[in-house]
Computed example of a mutant assay.
Amino acid sequence: MSGVPENAPQHCPGTESADAGKASACAGCPNQNICASGVPAGPDPAIEIIKNRLSNVKHKIIILSGKGGVGKSTVTSLLGHALSKLNPDINVGILDADICGPSQPRVLGVRGEQVHNSGSGWSPVYVTDNLSLMSIGFLLSSPDDAVIWRGPKKNGMIKQFLSEVDWGDLDYLLIDTPPGTSDEHLSAVQYLSQAGVTGAIVVTTPQEVALLDVRKEIQFCRKVGLPIIGVVENMSLFVCPNCKSRSEIFPATTGGAAQLCAELALRPLGALPLDPLLARACDAGADFVRELPHSPAVAALGRIVAEIVNICNERNGS
């Protein structure tokens, strides 16, 4: 369709239409105000700003899943800790892009910390010397405050996070997103379109009810041109912390992530077991990787991280 902006939502009426910026399909689109104003649409100037801001970030990885409750935030925090421990010279940042449900400050044990603003932008909160975090959770007066925002305001917050946080030199930036294929995801992909995104890691659990939504997320990635690094199957087995016996809490009745990857030509990154000690560590904001290095979950995480590092190096040509 003539006049349709790049990365526009499905059913976009186009900039030349009388409904530009006013149709129901325009709700939440970052270009909505521009289209409604009648000003010819062009690239959002924030895209270039974000490209420059993130020029010192080597690998930018978006953590996705169409299904809620599969453990995206847990997986993101584990990857952040594990990557930062590979080498003290490796710097890792986590951006909590879940505007309405920011959980990373709790999971990473930095609730109540303050974000400082300077001439160079917002400074992220440091969890360790080489692991930093930015989240809207740091900007709320209370952890119990509800963020009741429509799409455009959430999009603006993501734009601000991407364009104004001073991460410094990072080897990995992990972007933790909410469930679905909606505002936050479209905004993140659009604003990072010129910044050289390494790809997406898709998180699922083994049961078909989760895989149904994950398939939608994979289709989203393919429609917007977001490369997929691979799939992590979380909570694949329950491992008893005492006797180490294993059982299926979420049965893989249709083959789980392995079958999904085979069907859709994706790379399986590995499977993380369901460990109650991990859940307790997340609630307490403890570093599970450091405190329980011999856990089966940490061993599985090590293999997953090795896969991710290899893929990132391959795509970076190093």
Score class of each variant (00 low, 15 high):
Pro296Ala: 00
Pro268Trp: 14
Phe238Tyr: 15
Phe138Met: 04
Cys240Tyr: 12
Lys85Arg: 14
Ser17Met: 03
Thr198Val: 13
Met157Ile: 15
Asn234Trp: 10
Gly14Met: 08
Leu274Ser: 10
Arg267Phe: 14
Trp167His: 06
Pro143Gln: 10
Ser123Cys: 02
Pro227Ile: 13
Thr253Arg: 13
Gln114Gly: 00
Gly69Leu: 10
Ala257Trp: 07
Ile94Ala: 02
Leu54Trp: 07
Leu79Gly: 07
Lys154Val: 13
Ile61Val: 15
Lys22Ala: 07
Leu54Gly: 10
Gly3Val: 08
Asn316Val: 01
Cys240Asp: 15
Leu278Asp: 09
Ala20Phe: 07
Phe220Glu: 01
Ala41Thr: 13
Leu79Glu: 06
Pro40Gln: 09
Gly69Phe: 12
Phe138Tyr: 08
Arg290Asn: 10
Glu263Ile: 05
Ala210His: 02
Gly68Asn: 12
Phe238Glu: 09
Lys159Leu: 05
Val214Thr: 12
Val209Trp: 02
Leu212Ala: 13
Ser187Val: 02
Ser24Met: 03
Asn310Gln: 14
Leu79Ile: 12
Gly93Pro: 06
Glu291Met: 09
Ala306Met: 08
Pro88Ala: 12
Arg315Ala: 13
Phe288Asp: 11
Ser37Thr: 06
Asn117Ser: 11
Ala284Ser: 10
Ser120Met: 08
Val165Glu: 12
Thr15Asn: 06
Cys29Ile: 05
Gln259Leu: 06
Pro13Ser: 03
Lys216Asp: 04
Leu131Ile: 05
Arg215Thr: 15
Asp169Met: 06
Glu48Pro: 01
Ala286Asp: 14
Ile304Asn: 07
Asp98Ile: 11
Asn117Phe: 11
Arg303Met: 12
Arg106Ser: 03
Asn87Val: 09
Asp89Lys: 15
Leu170Thr: 06
Leu86Pro: 02
Thr74Gly: 12
Ile50Ala: 06
Pro179Gly: 05
Ile99Lys: 02
Ile228Met: 07
Thr204Phe: 00
Asp98Gln: 05
Leu260Trp: 10
Gly42Trp: 02
Pro179Met: 07
Cys12Gly: 03
